[in-house]
Design a protein around this nucleic acid. Structure first.
Length: 1042
RNA sequence: GCGCCCAUAGCUCAGUCGGCUAGAGCGCACGACUGAUAAUCGUGAGGUCGGUGGUUCGAAUCCACCUGGGCGCACCA
């Protein structure tokens, strides 16, 4: 065993452990050792390695590591395959930036092959950083055999899944209005849109659409509000709700009439205005109006009022302007009413030449919108305008504001199997449970079709070929199928190579050409249960064993991300839920509770945290601080605190054990075992607490409550250190190796060993360090598993959980606490022995068993069992402040009466809470009962217990106090010059003659305690230290030498 | 706008089924210990349990509404 330096920096300890794991291949062995055992299935959600890790990744990885470690110790086989998410817009945008490109035209010019290869190369840009993070954190995951979404095998599996979905008729193309990024020139799915909402201020305008017919000879307008003035040139209709009532208001100031919904008229009727007509929405339908811009010239039904049920009178005017290309509801309502369709915005978000005056201008440009509104205002068509703050979707990667845009896309008809999605989600153990019916439940209730296609380059190609003549389409589900059709395989299953493959259509006239789109990256990652194994082309048996997952864990933003894509694909393909238990984590926030983000500059570098506090401390902090689904504040001071109250404490105990076990050459495997039943009470108590802790920790891990496990461990380690070790220190430095000493060693050994095992999932480094040193004796104990992580999880022995003993010890601790309170009040330091402690006779049976502990802890000569009335007098003690407020001038009189209250009055107060004094009724707010000692000393009482401390000093007690004081000073000097704890040394003393006599009289005891070899008669010439002390007011000068 | 979560000491958090005087750690003040010692232990001060109302013998806990924070959703016209 090696000596332990509790001050060793955590990083150096953790480096040592990492070295050992690597050297001995422990991670690999931990998986190997459980081969053939039942599987406990974990799925890794793939991060993208082209960005740097964030503290949030540390949080998820702590929990992704902890439960697999626990399950492995419980005897399960856990496969831990890493994964990388490699496709998609984020990668493309990086490359665009890198080469100074902007938009798809530039990419085309750059060359798609070159572009795609550049993407491929950049995907693992930060892999090294991720690898280091993973290692430093102690996250055991197989990074050498990861699944990668860009490989042909992976893509082939994804194709297989798409084909199944296609064959079920759920993969369809459609023309609909979707959120669209004009920079990336592609549509986004709902879960991508969800990532990018931001609060922005946009110019909003209430425009006036002049009705064809004047009323009362005055111009009459329909009012409609919009926050997107750029959609007004494409206006083809106005929508009302058939069932709402609309009013016509005569505006006195401008002498014109305006239509708005009745429910909103309050915002439009000003002084002098009046309502001159009222109509149901259905009666307005069909009314013609003049458009506010002249650009819609296409023939057909247009510029009339139509009905749409989605119109409400909750905001705006209750009349909605319709631009069918830019709103899902607009599109549907216009179609239903048979209005024409126009789209004046091109794929890069600019006006086409149809909008002659604004051709080429970007529609989300603020100036353009201002110009449009000015244009309207010049023509008197603005009723009102203002800056409106609202949250508006932005592209989650390039930050461009999205527009709603009617475009051709491929969809998975998730709405078709919505019920199955809901049923599968219901079967999952969501942690915390509210996710099931809350976040996830709501989302699934409102599920919309999955917009799968992206008109981009770097992604899994949509495996659909279409005949350029007859339009027939075919979905390809494997490489073999493709080869059969096309006669060959491409260099890789990516654009542009894949697009080169064509074949003649059955129709005999045309060629089958692949559609240009790639798919949403979320489909890639959601396919991983299948694709990570290249299923069904390989590993069919393995897949059966590894599906579905027992456990997945990500942060809450993945509800609509990975959790959903896994669920949707799995439900579509197998009809089953892909996972059984899902731990949904909260976000990591900074010290002020603000989200950590690069732009705010408040991101704590995970590596800095590891360097400062060690990975164990970070891990323990995240696990113990709060339940993981709550937001977690992350800052250095908090981690340092977690370290101090658990990691350091445990390492201190380890150091203590190693120090003495080293000195004594204690070997737990070679000594004669002392059965627990034959060990002292203290040992039995600790063992009882230990097994109680095993039970609690095991159950907590089992139900995915590692926070509870960590807190139970922390409580146990605290008691182990501050009560067991502190109370039993002298047993470890007793001479020889008697049975009591062996019992103490065995007890502490078992506690340390078990704690190392219990804490291994949470703090794997510290656990290993203790295990190697204490359990494996630095490698000498060959008969125990090589690593703590190869051990079986400890089993609690219920028979050892002596609950009565645990309760009794709690009582003892309470007595000690009360005793220390009295010591504090008496101002008599603990080193001064006192004659007696009084405790309740009623508890004699229990207390007597622990008398020596209590006596020693409080430094009293004797414990006396008494009744409270034997040692204390109850008194009525007034709260003069309260009494003064209530009774004013009678206060002094009442106080006098309280002092003289007799026993019956006090008993009445004790029993009823009220007492009659001098004709007034005093209650508990005015008075309390205090106890006055009947002996020379102090008494304290609580509702269960009382403790009395005798403070009378006899000459003998005083002398002993001096002795203890002198011993203490001598020990401090030994410490200061850093003599070994077993060295015998020489002392010389001079000073107060009385004190010197005390020393002389107590030489035997002092010498034995302080290991004094010789008292010198003359000053020590070779003294290592000389110090002058004040010993209870008497001068003493001491010198020490070896 | 709709939905989910949260709000307890200066800070971070416990508080079980509604039930003793609402707890812990850190910080602060004071003290103790001194063979784990740059470690450790104790005592004390510190609370309108976010607010208002309700249910109840009894509410931090259950209900309603409100306020503040975090997050999510989206036809915010």
């Amino acid at each position: 065993m090696r000596k332990v330096d509790a001050k060793e920096p955590a990083t150096s300890r953790e480096q040592r452990v990492l070295e050992f794991w690597k050297q001995e291949n422990i991670f690999h062995k931990s998986e190997k050792a459980r081969e053939g055992r039942p599987e406990w299935v974990f799925y890794e959600g793939p991060p993208t390695a082209n960005g740097l890790p964030h503290p949030g990744h540390v949080l998820t990885r702590v929990f992704k590591d902890l439960y697999p470690r626990y399950r492995t110790m419980k005897g399960y086989h856990v496969m831990r395959k890493a994964g990388w998410d490699t496709h998609g817009l984020p990668v493309e945008i990086e490359i665009e930036k890198k080469f100074g490109m902007n938009g798809k035209k530039d990419i085309q010019a750059f060359g798609i092959e070159r572009f795609v290869q550049a993407c491929r190369e950049s995907v693992f840009k930060y892999e090294e950083v991720w690898r280091e993070l993973t290692e430093r954190l102690g996250y055991w995951i197989d990074l050498d055999h990861p699944y990668m979404t860009l490989t042909d095998d992976y893509i082939e599996s994804v194709w297989h899944l798409l084909k199944i979905i296609y064959d079920k008729g759920w993969l369809v193309e459609g023309h609909r209005v979707s959120p669209y990024c004009p920079h990336c020139e592609t549509t986004l799915s709902s879960h991508e849109v969800a990532q990018g909402y931001k609060d922005v201020k946009d110019l909003s305008v209430t425009a006036k659409f002049r009705a064809a017919d004047d009323v009362d000879g005055r111009p009459t307008y329909f009012l409609a509000w919009t926050t997107t003035p750029w959609t007004l040139p494409s206006n083809v209709g106005l929508a009302v709700n058939e069932d709402l009532t609309y009013v016509l208001i005569h505006k006195a100031k401008t002498d014109e009439n305006v239509w708005v919904a009745e429910g909103l008229q309050g915002q439009f009727v000003e002084e002098g205005d009046r309502v001159i007509a009222q109509k149901r929405g259905r009666d307005l339908v069909g009314s013609a109006y003049t458009p506010v811009f002249p650009y819609v010239v296409q023939e057909g039904k247009k510029h009339i009022v139509i009905a749409s049920p989605h119109v409400t009178d909750e905001s705006g005017t209750g009349i909605v302007h319709m631009a069918p290309a830019h709103g899902e509801e607009d599109y549907k309502a216009c179609q239903a009413a048979g209005l024409i369709f126009v789209n004046f915005v091109d794929e890069s978000g600019r006006f086409t030449k149809d909008v002659a005056d604004y051709e080429g201008r970007f529609v989300k440009d603020e100036e353009l919108n201002v110009d449009l509104v000015k244009d309207l205002a010049a023509r008197g068509l603005v009723y009102e305008k203002h800056k409106h703050e609202h949250s508006y979707p932005h592209c989650w990667r390039c930050d461009t504001p999205l527009i709603y845009y009617a475009i051709h896309s491929w969809f998975i008809r998730t709405t078709e199997f919505k019920d199955a999605l809901i049923a599968n989600s219901q079967s999952v153990n969501w942690i915390p449970p509210h996710i099931r019916d809350g976040r996830m439940g709501n989302f699934l209730e409102n599920v919309i079709d999955w917009n799968l296609s992206r008109s981009r380059y770097w992604g899994t190609p949509l495996p659909i070929w279409r005949c350029d003549a007859c339009g027939e389409i075919e979905c390809i589900g494997s490489r073999a199928e493709l080869e059969k059709k096309a006669g060959r395989l491409p260099k890789e299953l990516h654009k542009p190579y894949i697009d080169e493959l064509t074949w003649p259509c059955r129709c005999g006239r045309g060629t089958m050409v692949r559609v240009p789109e790639v798919i949403d990256v979320w489909f890639d990652s959601g396919s991983m249960p299948f694709a990570q194994l290249h299923y069904p082309f390989e590993n069919q048996d393995l897949f059966e064993r590894l599906y579905p997952a027992d456990f997945v864990c990500e942060a809450i933003d993945q509800t609509r991300g990975w959790f959903y894509s896994l669920l949707a694909i799995s439900t579509a393909v197998t009809g089953r839920a892909p996972y059984k238990n899902v731990l949904v984590l909260g976000h990591v926030l900074d010290e002020q509770g603000k989200k950590m983000s690069k732009s705010k500059g408040n991101v704590i570098d995970p590596f800095e945290a590891f360097d400062k506090h060690g990975a164990d401390a970070v891990r323990f902090y995240f696990v113990s601080n709060t339940q993981p689904w709550n937001s977690q504040l992350f800052y250095h001071r908090a981690v340092a605190e977690a370290k101090a109250k658990y990691i350091d404490l445990l390492q201190n105990i380890h150091q203590f054990y190693a120090l003495y076990a080293g000195i004594d050459g204690f070997n737990p495997y070679q000594v004669e075992q002392v059965p627990v039943a034959e060990r002292p009470l203290m040992d039995r108590w600790l063992i009882a607490r230990l097994h109680q802790t095993i039970q609690g920790v095991d159950e907590a891990y089992e139900r995915y409550d590692a926070t509870q496990a960590a807190r139970l461990l922390q409580a146990f380690v605290d008691e182990l250190s501050t009560w067991y070790v502190r109370r039993n220190r002298d047993r470890f430095w007793a001479d020889g190796m008697g049975r009591d000493k062996v019992a103490a060693y065995l007890t502490l050994f078992e506690a340390l060993k078990t704690v190392a095992l219990l804490t291994a999932p949470i703090t794997p480094f510290l656990a290993e360090d203790i295990y190697q040193n204490v359990v494996r004796l630095g490698g000498d104990a060959k008969h125990v598993p090589e690593s703590v992580h190869l051990c079986d999880f400890p089993a609690a022995d219920a028979a050892l959980v002596d609950e009565a003993l645990i309760r009794e010890m709690a009582l003892v601790l309470r007595i000690v606490e009360m005793g220390r309170h009295l010591r504090n009040e008496s101002k008599l330091k603990t080193r001064q022995p006192l004659a007696a402690l009084y405790v309740p006779k009623a508890q004699q049976d229990v207390i007597a068993k622990f008398a020596d502990v209590i006596q020693d802890e409080l430094n009293v000569k004797e414990i006396r069992f008494v009744d409270l009335d034997d040692i204390a007098r109850p008194m009525l003690y007034l709260n003069l402040n309260a009494v003064g407020k209530a009774f004013g001038r009678k206060t002094p009189m009442l106080n006098e009466a309280a002092k003289n209250a007799d026993e019956t009055q006090i008993r009445a107060f004790r029993e009823t809470g009220a007492v009659e004094l001098a004709g007034e009724t005093l209650t508990q707010e005015h008075a309390e009962i205090r106890y006055e000692a009947k002996f020379e000393g102090l008494v304290t009482v609580d509702n269960r217990l009382f403790v009395g401390l005798e403070t009378r000093l006899t000459p003998e007690l005083v002398e002993e106090g001096y002795v203890r004081e002198v011993i203490s000073k001598m020990q401090m000097m030994r410490k200061e010059v850093d003599y070994g704890v077993t060295h015998h040394v020489r002392f010389y003393a001079e000073g107060d003659p009385e004190l010197l006599q005390v020393i002389a009289r107590n030489r035997a005891r002092i010498d034995q305690t302080v290991l004094v070899r010789e008292w010198s008669d003359a000053p020590l010439a070779d003294a290592d230290l000389t110090k002058e002390w004040d010993v209870n007011g008497k001068k003493l000068t001491l010198s020490v030498a070896r």
